[in-house]
Amino acid sequence: MAKNTIDLNVDIGEGFAHDVELLDYATSVNVACGWHAGDPLTMRNITSEAIQRGIAIGAHPSFPDRENFGRVPMDLSLEEVYAGVQYQVGALAAVVAGLSGRVTHVKPHGALYNQAEQDADLAQTIVRAVRDVDSEMAIFGLAGGQLVRIAREEGLVAIDEGFADRAYTSTGKLVPRSQSNAMLGCKELACAQAIRMVLDGRVRTEDGSDVGIDVQSICLHGDTPNALAFARMVRTELAKANIIVQSIDHSRSPTAFSKTNGVIRPVADAA
């Protein structure tokens, strides 16, 4: 559904030097909880900065796989996944509570995120683990996908997410990272894709066709080359397109936006 308002979420706390600077361009963050990257001190430092800026804080749980950055599929029991998601979300929630803040959402990372789109039992396990920690937390998932659908069926708010820098298949899924064309290497093309998702509710797929996509948030990866320059460019191009960037009010509905972060400012004027 076309609109002119969008949330920008950034995967963060994964050990890159530009993390704090990336906060200047985010309205939501997904903080690594230690299993694919991150550690308690990084979690505290990042969330402290996010709280000061009024940025929505989310947990970014993964498979227990630091060696492969959580991007290799794993075959864990549903009990292991349930406990692991709760462990990671609970750890970040405790850190944020100690800073007088609150975790507002959960976005699975990497292979856990992608496998949830293929395995309904896995998706339901993730959703129920989050719900049983705090039913006020929202779930971020692939726009139009299985994870967000199941989250809504289980009574949680779900946020449909799009990706500026990832290629899409003709079925609206992400092209697997194992394929050479999974990432959009051209920053200008990625910015154009983000703007078209918001304004037109469409995305061009790898085979040249168009599919509909209804996004409430667009992801910016913190681990990609030139992540900071790309985030700056996205904000600038969104401003040129008169698209408002602000965080989602998770407590109301998947498509409701808060007014706390205001209208996007030109990058030159950003804090």
Rank of each mutant, 00 (worst) to 15 (best):
Y82F: 14
Y87I: 02
Q88F: 08
Q88Y: 09
A91G: 05
L92N: 03
L92T: 05
A93N: 00
A94V: 04
V95G: 04
V95W: 04
G98H: 04
G98F: 06
L99E: 14
R102T: 12
R102C: 06
V103Q: 12
V103A: 12
K107W: 05
H109D: 03
G110K: 06
A111E: 02
A111P: 03
L112F: 07
L112H: 06
Y113K: 00
A116P: 00
Q118R: 14
Q118W: 01
D119G: 01
D119R: 04
D121P: 03
A123M: 07
V127E: 12
V127R: 12
V130S: 10
V130I: 15
D132W: 04
D132I: 05
D132E: 11
V133C: 08
S135N: 14
I139R: 07
G141V: 02
L142Q: 09
L142G: 04
G144R: 09
V148P: 08
E154D: 15
L156D: 01
I159F: 13
D160N: 15
D160V: 08
D160E: 14
E161C: 10
F163L: 13
A164Q: 07
D165H: 04
D165W: 01
A167H: 03
Y168A: 06
Y168K: 05
T169M: 11
K173L: 14
L174K: 11
V175A: 09
P176Y: 03
R177Q: 00
Q179M: 07
N181P: 02
L189F: 10
A190H: 03
A192R: 09
A194N: 06
M197H: 09
V198C: 10
R202E: 15
V203Q: 02
R204Y: 00
T205W: 01
T205Q: 03
E206F: 06
